[in-house]
Design a protein around this nucleic acid. Structure first.
Lengths: 161, 161
DNA sequence: GCATTTGATTATGCACTATAACAAATTGCA
DNA sequence: TGCAATTTGTTATAGTGCATAATCAAATGC
């Protein structure tokens, strides 16, 4: 009986020593693992980190415009459009024309969206607790601080100022 | 005079407080910034982190097979193919049929590949020094350690063991 | 009032990841 | 030894994330 083994025991083979001192490479690896865990901690209808971020922000700031949301998430306006279309299709959020600016839309969660956010948040707490379990609370906080600093790396001109 | 301002002063606007305590989200942000800086630290013909990783490993392990390389990098065999095609097209690396296993190829850097690796490594040192400048040596080391731990998060079964 | 800017959208492209299917070669074992 | 199973590289394909340019309507700034 062949039976394609359920998944070779290849547990994210250690990165070769050449690369494990490269911050960027390790960041990518960690990010993939953490995102996968975030999704894995959910049940039934899984929500991707990106969609979750959108839903969470809309829920926190009802009536937000698409542009404002894009600024918050550092994504391009053009890329938000299909995201919102999908959320609308799933009955999670809606666009409503602004009353004060006829160009822009106000974003709102629908009841199903509220419920989904609550559900994913529960999973997210489990997910984060798994991280704390791995790093400890203090180091997790240090990690967040460092990641925040790194996200400002923005080419501050390697040459002069 | 209109002059489309060179880039609105939107310096990676701070992530909304709702998300900045989310490790996954902050990892993604930091990773994007770090990758961008890695590329920005190079001159002339920029090399992406992915291609660089491939070239570096081939350089360190001449004769490596494609499968072995994929294992090291945790990428799928199918995705390495176009990558290698591109490297061959640019005259940076080649496949040579293995003498001991006629299924597999041995990978080698061409002189141009060697030179490119050396050049990018120089940029990489500058890039990493910019990170150290931001975090300090000790915290950078702590960061690497934590990222390594996180990359092993792999669903260790949230339920039981 | 008219030039400029802004908000949302469409179209498009690139990079990365993932899966399934396949042929040729190798391996394992009965 | 012979045949089933696995491995290697490949093709085809799909989904996701990010980016740019062009467009239209609406708002803003002299």
């Amino acid at each position: 009986m062949p039976r394609t083994r359920p998944q070779s025991p290849k547990p994210t083979s250690a990165p070769s020593a050449e690369l494990e001192s490269n911050v960027g490479y390790m960041l990518r690896r960690a990010q993939l693992a953490v995102f996968a865990d975030f999704v894995a901690c959910q049940s039934a209808p899984r929500t991707r980190p990106g969609q979750y971020a959108v839903l969470l922000l809309i829920g926190r700031h009802p009536g937000l415009s698409q542009s404002a949301l894009c600024d918050q998430l550092s994504i391009k306006r053009a890329n938000l459009v299909p995201l919102l279309n999908e959320l609308k299709r799933r009955g999670l959020a809606i666009r409503r024309p602004s009353l004060t600016d006829r160009r822009s839309n106000c974003l709102y969660l629908l009841p199903a969206g509220e419920k989904l956010v609550a559900r994913v948040q529960k999973a997210e707490r489990i997910h984060e607790s798994r991280i704390v379990q791995l790093l400890g609370t203090q180091r997790q906080q240090q990690l967040l601080t460092m990641l925040e600093q790194l996200s400002h790396l923005r080419l501050s001109a390697p040459k002069a100022d």
